[in-house]
């Protein structure tokens, strides 16, 4: 029988806030890093706008390496780097660097795939008009890919949220931390149930919001 009278609702509210901050800030940096990387992957691939097979192979290899490290391992491996970057590996701040490093390659790959879906003919038409390459990328390619980019961002945000919860293992903050310290280590099943329920709700909300945005930007 679950007894809700034991719950410290203030703690839960604060942990939810921390999870949102970790997810939001990490998402911002993930997009800032992953979007250019994804664009670079797309344009340097063979047959594309700025074909550079050598550059593509290197970038693609780095992305694959980062994506093949399990996130829990990455969390631990990143600790010294995180300390170097922001002075601590604990709490909300400490969780952000590994989150960004863990999801940027995923996001970059998603961006690359989305851009590949843009009709080749549209890009050819722009080239035929004599539009310089950088204007094709920012004026045509990205706007054409907008619904797909938003969908990719949604997927990444949800991945970030689950990773953020995982960072509780190494002392990151938020709902994951709460679930591990109270729900797991102190056997407070109620806390576990509530954190999981909250995570489910947050994910539903993000997905719904993302879908609405995709619909808004779809012109088909």
């Amino acid at each position: 029988m679950i007894d809700l009278s034991m719950i410290e609702w203030g703690d839960i509210a604060f942990a939810t806030w921390e999870t949102l901050v970790m997810t939001g800030v990490s998402l911002l940096f993930t997009v800032l890093l992953g979007l250019p990387l994804g664009i670079l992957l797309f344009v340097t691939a063979s047959g594309q706008l700025l074909e550079q097979p050598g550059v593509y192979r290197v970038l693609s290899f780095v992305v694959n390496v980062l994506r093949s490290v399990p996130f829990l391992i990455l969390l631990i491996v990143m600790i010294p780097v995180t300390v170097l970057l922001i002075g601590t590996s604990l709490g909300v701040e400490g969780a952000i660097p590994p989150l960004v490093v863990g999801t940027s390659p995923l996001f970059a790959r998603l961006v690359e795939n989305v851009l590949r879906e843009v009709d080749r003919g549209v890009i050819e038409a722009c080239q035929a008009m004599g539009v310089p390459t950088h204007r094709i990328i920012f004026g045509a390619l990205l706007p054409e890919a907008m619904p797909g980019l938003i969908a990719a961002t949604t997927v990444t945000a949800i991945t970030l949220m689950s990773y953020a919860a995982m960072s509780g293992v190494i002392g990151g903050g938020g709902l994951g931390d709460l679930a591990i310290r109270f729900g797991y280590q102190r056997f407070q099943t109620e806390v576990m149930v509530i954190t999981v329920a909250l995570l489910v709700m947050l994910v539903q909300f993000i997905q719904h919001a993302g879908d609405r945005l995709v619909l808004y930007f779809t012109r088909k």
Partner: peptide, 8 residues
Amino acid sequence: HFNLLNAK
């Protein structure tokens, strides 16, 4: 196939 920009 016209190759128009769908977003514009």
